[in-house]
């Protein structure tokens, strides 16, 4: 009649399913917490493991040397996240606008663009170095 009750009593004894990223309870001061992590005072609980390194779509990696400046990636980018630098004939990618569709990877004729498995990209400033690839 009430099948959930027995299920609940069973679950009560089990470990929580939640992945406790980055800490069990939200830290009071995130920046302070991250600073502690960098200094090695506290340990961060890792996020869920990346399942497949080949297929995962994370932050774009740009091979500057290979790039021939054909502008094809700019033509297909749905988010208009790629800018062309006229004088150098190279590109600049704004990760803040990127939607991680990896269409530019497919279209690139010289294989200069790749998706890495880096995905912790939160930043307070959208123009910070972390969020611009060139």
């Amino acid at each position: 009649m009430l099948p959930m009750l027995s299920q609940l009593l069973k679950q009560m004894m089990k470990k929580p399913f939640t992945n406790l990223f980055p800490a069990k309870y939200a830290p009071k001061n995130v920046r302070g917490y991250l600073k502690n992590v960098q200094e090695g005072k506290t340990k961060i609980i890792p996020p869920v493991g990346i399942p497949d390194e080949e297929t995962f779509r994370g932050k774009i990696v740009y091979d500057r040397e290979k790039c021939i400046g054909c502008k094809m990636c700019i033509r297909v980018c749905p988010a208009k996240a790629i800018e062309f630098k006229e004088e150098e004939k190279k590109i600049r990618i704004y990760i803040g606008r990127c939607i991680f569709c990896s269409q530019c990877n497919d279209v690139c004729p010289v294989d200069a663009l790749h998706m890495s498995n880096e995905f912790l990209l939160a930043d307070a400033n959208k123009a910070s170095e972390n969020l611009i690839v060139e």
């Binding site: 959930m4 679950q11 399913f17 497949d52 297929t55 995962f56 779509r57 991680f100 569709c101 269409q103």
Partner: peptide, 25 residues
């Protein structure tokens, strides 16, 4: 909470096959 816990499995598979949890592209 129970159903969404069960749903995680298909989300993991989507991530495995497509490279992202939600948007398939």
């Amino acid at each position: 909470h129970y159903v969404w816990m069960v749903r995680e499995k298909v989300m993991d598979i989507l991530e495995l096959v497509n490279g992202n949890r939600v948007t398939k592209s």
